[in-house]
């Protein structure tokens, strides 16, 4: 067998290995989603979405958790987007490359890999206790913002880095200041990727359970939060609650809750894809 034949066999083997690996993921996902939908889809109706929690499974709804998740999502976005994007702009465009800045950079990258429980503990100490936010939305939003800041910073920096330097030179060459160049060339060109990164980070935040449990969102909350200082619960915790009940009717509720959570996550990913597409057309690369 000559080496060309060998290579061809390797090539083909690798191709099938790839197909096999991809299918495992897809099959598992399909089976999982399929069984959840089978269990839960019948339970989803307007009442389920708009009812408060209840001790009776058939009367229990997901409104408090859904509203809590939406509140938390919006507040987390408000805290984390300006901070994350500004930090990325600073690191990429303004900060001088000193030993201190590379130390910072390495640590930000590492922070993206820290388990979320650790952020929960940090949030508990700083926001819940020291700053006395209690188990409120405020504490939750700050904690989740900490959790996704590294992701936003890293993806935003990558997006900024991908803007060709020839564009920046052209802008400077016309008498633009650094900020004008960032504002009118770099950010618009990088905007699609930045928005995508932010939305993916936020959709991770919405599925997080551990940190919100630690800061105290596990408590039974009977009402929809009205302000940032209110206590709250979120979809994953509500699901977790229902799953751990012995009554089968609650497990059906949990399946329905999972469908709602999945729908929210898919919707956010869809928006990310749409934004990226829209932006590409607008930027005219």
């Amino acid at each position: 067998m000559n080496s060309r034949q060998k290579n061809r066999i390797k090539d083909r083997a690798f191709k099938y290995l790839g197909i096999f690996s991809t299918s495992i993921g897809l099959i598992l996902l399909t089976v999982f989603i399929g069984s959840i939908i089978k269990d839960g889809i019948g339970r989803i109706d307007w009442d389920f979405l708009t009812n408060l929690p209840s001790r009776k499974a058939e009367k229990a709804g997901i409104l408090t958790a859904l509203a809590g998740s939406v509140w938390l999502l919006v507040m987390t976005a408000i805290v984390s987007i300006p901070l994350g994007v500004a930090a990325a702009i600073h690191l990429e465009e303004y900060s001088r490359k000193t030993r201190w800045s590379s130390f910072l950079e390495i640590n930000i990258t590492n922070l993206a890999g820290v388990p979320s429980v650790i952020y929960g503990i940090l949030g508990l100490q700083i926001f819940v206790r020291t700053m006395r936010f209690g188990g409120s939305l405020l504490a939750g939003a700050f904690t989740l913002a900490l959790l996704i800041l590294p992701i936003i910073i890293v993806t935003t920096r990558e997006a900024i880095k991908a803007v060709p330097s020839s564009i920046k030179e052209a802008s400077y060459g016309l008498g633009a200041t650094k900020w004008q160049t960032i504002r009118h060339q770099v950010l618009p060109a990088a905007g699609g990727s930045i928005a995508t990164g932010i939305i993916l980070a936020l959709s991770r935040a919405i599925g997080e359970t551990a940190p919100v449990i630690i800061i105290g969102a596990l408590a039974y909350v009977a009402f929809v939060p009205q302000s940032p200082t209110d206590e709250f619960t979120v979809l994953p915790i509500q699901i977790f609650n229902w799953v751990s009940r012995p009554d089968h009717a609650f497990v059906v509720n949990a399946a329905a809750g999972i469908i709602v959570l999945l729908a929210v996550t898919f919707m956010m990913n869809g928006i990310a894809v749409y934004l990226r597409h829209r932006w590409q057309n607008k930027v005219n690369w």
Partner: peptide, 25 residues
């Protein structure tokens, strides 16, 4: 003014490319 080795228009419309220098003023 400067013209570079590789043409480097902004990823914008023709009009906005030419107007850019004045807009930033």
């Amino acid at each position: 003014g400067m013209v570079f080795q590789k043409p480097n228009p902004f990823p914008k419309t023709i009009y906005e490319n030419v107007a850019y220098g004045l807009r930033i003023q």
